[in-house]
């Protein structure tokens, strides 16, 4: 008799628990972070495949960047613009001094005076992998060269960089690497490789942060 009552109680408790779980599931489905809106952001983005309408505003890059050149030919990538580098080079055109082939220039060296371009230290790759001529060639100094000796404009250094850093240059063309100038609105203008990286020492240097951290002795209120 007692055991029957116990079993009855146990059963009813179990039923109650089940009912509570049901209610629990119910609330989860209707309230809380609802699955409907999760699907909506991703599908919203995925389904937005029509070219965006003209946003009615135009990006403008600051005047200090000067001229831009058009970049085409990246697969699945609409043409975009990058900063033309020639206007930013201090002594361009190089042929102002380099009026003869490199061998002739080297003959002009004076033993007791520093070499021209003495200040440039190559911190890009080991010396056995890379020398000045890997990018500058031995011929026309107004142009860069590829590994196969083809001339490349100083405005398009990405063509030279891409020979080794193809992932980075692809990311750059797509928008995951590098820096967009102006705003998000068209036209798209991005910084050129050598606008951010010194090609002779491309790694970014360490420096102090732009704002004081709380760990600083000079942090206000410390």
């Amino acid at each position: 008799m007692a055991s029957l009552r116990l079993r009855k109680r146990l059963l009813s408790a179990l039923a109650g628990l089940l009912a509570m779980m049901q209610v629990g599931c119910g609330t989860k489905a209707t309230h809380g972070p609802d699955g409907a809106s999760r699907a909506s952001l991703l599908s919203l983005v995925r389904n937005a495949n029509e070219p965006a309408p003209d946003p009615g505003v135009q990006s403008a890059i600051p005047a200090r960047y000067g001229e831009v050149t058009r970049v085409e030919g990246f697969p699945d990538q609409p043409p975009f613009n990058t900063v033309a580098r020639q206007g930013h080079l201090e002594t361009y055109p190089c042929s102002q001094c380099h009026d003869k082939p490199l061998a002739g220039m080297l003959a002009l060296r004076k033993k007791d005076q520093p070499n021209s371009h003495w200040q440039i230290v190559q911190k890009h790759a080991p010396e056995h992998a890379m020398s000045c001529q890997t990018c500058h060639g031995a011929g026309d100094q107004d142009k860069l060269v590829t590994l196969t000796g083809q001339a490349v404009s100083m405005d398009a250094p990405f063509q030279v960089c891409a020979q080794c850093h193809s992932t980075q240059v692809n990311d750059w063309a797509g928008g995951a690497h590098g820096k967009r100038l102006g705003g998000w609105a068209p036209p798209r203008v991005v910084e050129n490789c050598t606008g951010c990286h010194n090609p002779h020492a491309p790694a970014f240097e360490s420096r102090w942060p732009a704002v004081l951290g709380k760990g600083s002795q000079n942090y206000p209120g410390r």
């Binding site: 919203l44 983005v45 937005a48 495949n49 965006a52 797509g174 998000w184």
Partner: peptide, 13 residues
């Protein structure tokens, strides 16, 4: 960028 613009950098990422 604009998530609804298929040519935007954010969409490429």
């Amino acid at each position: 960028g604009n998530l609804l613009d298929p040519d935007s950098e954010i969409r490429w990422v």
